[in-house]
């Protein structure tokens, strides 16, 4: 069954790259939805059910860690894999994301292969 994905990043450039990498991967990817912050992500999730979320951390309105916190408190999204893809590479931020329940963490810059490697086995 194809995996629907939500990509959350305030940078249109990064969203475009991630969508391309996902579609070019060997994974069975279905719909890829986009959101530019945590608020838009939660709104999107009310309309679309997804099996994977890729999220930035630094975003306006609601950042990636606040989004992660809300997702992990939601029965529907508690077990959905959430990967943080961000320029924030400090140990403090990584630990914060892990403690909130992030499935994985990847720093920008990244290569397409690194994304594929991180997501391998999900679909």
């Amino acid at each position: 069954m194809a995996l629907d994905v939500l990509v959350v990043d305030d940078s249109a450039a990064i969203r475009k790259i991630l969508v391309r990498v996902l579609k070019q991967s060997e994974m069975d990817i279905g719909q890829v939805y986009e959101a530019c912050d945590g608020v838009e992500a939660l709104n999107s999730l009310r309309e679309h059910s997804v099996g994977l979320i890729l999220s930035d951390i630094n975003m306006p309105n609601m950042d990636g860690l606040q989004l992660l916190n809300q997702l992990r408190a939601d029965l529907m999204y508690r077990h959905v894999p959430v990967f943080m893809i961000t320029t924030e590479g400090s140990q403090t931020k990584v630990m914060e994301a892990v403690n909130l329940g992030a499935t994985g963490y990847l720093r920008k810059p990244f290569t397409p292969d690194q994304i594929k490697e991180k997501l391998a086995g999900l679909a």
């Binding site: 940078s11 249109a12 450039a13 990064i14 320029t87 924030e88 590479g89 400090s90 720093r107 920008k108 810059p109």
Partner: peptide
Amino acid sequence: LDAVAEMANMIIGNVKT
């Protein structure tokens, strides 16, 4: 323009880290 903004974000973001 988005590409230049993202390059600035990643370069200086990594310097910050």
